[in-house]
Design a protein around this nucleic acid. Structure first.
Lengths: 133, 133
DNA sequence: GGAAATGGTTTCACTTTCTAACTATCTAGT
DNA sequence: ACTAGATAGTTAGAAAGTGAAACCATTTCC
């Protein structure tokens, strides 16, 4: 607990925007992904993710090298520092969620869990950013 | 159904941002609320809300007059057009939600309803925008 | 081998938001 | 009743996020 707090303050976990968080998380799960991969996952344009990723690299959260198979592509990955920040950010939201959910008794909690389980497949499909209505 | 579609296209429901939607919804529920009331509910600064509301007034979705009791305050309210746009926007999300939920059988649906009921009081408290951690 | 497609970056404009500074009105304390 | 301070809102200016257009480098396909 205290360790997490310390981490949060020290590691400049301060101010990870939602998009930044999602990007970092995605690249933690998918080492070596390219900018376009990020673009497809996050749903921004290529220029935007370009800047976004540049920022995360500057801050030392990400690491970029050339893809050996395709020299146009970037091979992106989270750095150790990046993973630390990511975990810190997760800890914060977990904490906050836990505090909220603490108000539920066991039965209610089980209910919620079941419901989430039922909803999960329904909302897993990607939105798709269709340009027309 | 077709009526709603028509409404959506006609009324320039196109492009209501989330903040705009929330503002409009709030002022539909709370006629005569002031800019500061909106600010407290939406969680933006006063200048931001000022411009936000100005935009909605310009588009004819909101209506402003002077509060008779306090001449500093605005008394804001949704116009008929604003309510129409609001309802159209709601219809869109309802539609989308309905499509998703259509995949659930009655039992699962009941489960989800119960869970939401349990969660509701937990998440009703306002976030609060605390400046420090 | 050259045309077309793909991956990224840069530039420019637009929008949203904030802070700071200001005006107008109201409230309280003397 | 006056004035000091609080409250409501606006304006101006700066910073951040995003997208479209133009561009370069590399790869793929006929």
């Amino acid at each position: 607990m205290r360790a997490i707090r310390a981490q949060m303050r020290s590691t400049a976990a301060k101010e990870l925007s939602v998009v930044q968080f999602r990007t970092l998380a995605f690249l933690d799960r998918n080492r070596g992904a390219s900018l376009s991969d990020v673009k497809d996952h996050i749903g921004l344009t290529l220029p935007s993710v370009s800047k976004l990723v540049q920022g995360l690299i500057t801050r030392g959260f990400l690491h970029r090298e050339e893809d050996p198979n395709d020299r146009r592509r970037n091979a992106l990955a989270a750095t150790a520092k990046g993973r630390k920040v990511l975990e810190a950010a997760r800890a914060v939201t977990r904490q906050s969620l836990a505090e909220r959910l603490a108000g539920l008794d066991d039965e209610a909690l089980a209910l919620v869990l079941e419901a989430m389980h039922a909803l999960r497949p329904i909302f897993l499909t990607h939105n798709g950013k269709g340009k027309e209505s």
